[in-house]
Design a protein around this nucleic acid. Structure first.
Lengths: 238, 238
DNA sequence: TCAAAAGTGTTATCATTACACCCATGG
DNA sequence: CCATGGGTGTAATGATAACACTTTTGA
């Protein structure tokens, strides 16, 4: 059942960079091994065509669920890649998304079909098909940039977490050796967006306090800060 | 000459939010009055279809030049809008870009064809066609966010500018009443990315020093700052 | 000599950094 | 009772905010 148009149209796909983190505090990315040409047997980002009646983000969410069985996670549009030569089969424009998943709370099923699916450590990625290396690199830079001024890092942690876990998360994402524990804690607590919710059990050392991210508080603070900015000035970075 | 595909494909367009600023320090946006249905006679963002062999950014630059005669300006991808109902004629996905133009150095020609083209003050916009209000709003938020941590504001100013002009620019973009002159100057000069290049002439008051943005210096500082971050920590905003 | 805008000095307060140290638990 | 991480005190330094003031020009 062919579809005919007066002018030629590029094909439209979505691709997803799915970041995951588990108790090991290692940042991982979900990849799929291609079963067909082009780039047969190479690893690639999960993705596929956008249905005609489906929103772009809905398409990304659908792909995400099809590949991983995961729902209700943070997802955000990353960038649209449309260089004419990026797919050898013809003009394909891809709207890329990135998602953040906590692997302990959202255990990932292998995809139902025969394809080979795997989590790769961010530092240990195979060569990727198409321009997916560029897409992944863009997503990593976005994550690194955004984590510094928006509380999206919490999406990678379980609901309740310790300050050490949170610190390791920042160290991992930013690729930093080791942040100063004292200063990290002072800062993050002074922000006032963490709520104490309990205490660790069953560890062979002093149990840590458990915190959760207080979204309501965060949004209230955002508003106040915005008003402040309007009233009294700005804070540049360089 | 029809084009036929096995599966249906959305149409792909680019739309441009073109911000301009002139000596009046007013932030303006370029709009086009539609000559045909749908939304006949309403104002809309300039845009059009992507050619099959053309990169997305190239398409945006082409539209920009066709509408304004302007080349060599800052342009950046904004977001891709693809909600199923956004165009009444069918599924149209639009990759939106935003551009920053200094209207004194890049005087804008009216478009060659019969269409009505006009600059509107950002505070005084007409109702826009399609979802262009949303696109514009997204662009404004991006500009406001980005101007605080990247030196893109300079793109709206002439090559040489005074600190007062720069301050007005920030006040306009951020929608702030009035920033503190002393502190603004201390901060922006301490960053070390402005180079003194001369002195104002022909004004009926004390002539101001002229500065230009020192891009090389900026990039050097960025690198140093990045190393710093890697070494010793991070600076969150909330 | 006046209006208009450019440009500077200074201080109290707050945030950041860099240390070293103590605490609670299970094995 | 000790290894292991959790958690805190503090002081020097640097950044920010809030003032009011002086300077230079053309008309």
């Amino acid at each position: 059942m062919p579809y005919t148009y007066e002018y030629p149209r590029p094909a439209l796909t979505v691709d997803c960079v799915i970041f995951g983190m588990d108790a090991s505090s290692d940042l991982k990315v979900l990849l799929i091994q291609r079963a067909h040409e082009p780039f047969k047997d190479q690893w690639a980002l999960p993705g596929g065509f956008v249905d005609m009646k489906e929103d772009l983000e809905a398409a990304a969410l659908r792909e995400l669920e099809e590949e991983t069985g995961v729902k209700d996670v943070f997802i955000e549009q990353l960038y649209t890649f449309g260089a004419p030569g990026r797919d050898p089969r013809g003009r394909v424009v891809s709207v890329a998304y990135y998602a953040l998943v906590n692997l302990d709370e959202h255990p990932v099923q292998a995809a139902s079909d025969a394809r080979n699916v795997n989590w790769f450590s961010q530092e240990n990625m195979p060569k990727l098909a198409f321009d997916h290396q560029l897409i992944f690199q863009t997503a990593l830079e976005r994550l690194r940039g955004k984590v510094r001024y928006q509380p999206i890092g919490f999406e990678l942690l379980p609901e309740q977490f310790t300050l050490s876990q949170l610190q390791k998360l920042y160290e991992t994402i930013l690729g930093v050796q080791e942040l100063n524990k004292r200063n990290f804690r002072t800062r993050i607590l002074k922000m006032g967006v963490l709520k104490e919710v309990g205490i660790q059990t069953g560890v062979a050392h002093r149990p840590a306090k458990l915190y959760c991210f207080d979204k309501a508080k965060y949004e209230q603070l955002l508003k106040e800060k915005h008003n402040d900015l309007l009233k009294r000035g700005l804070d540049f970075e360089i």
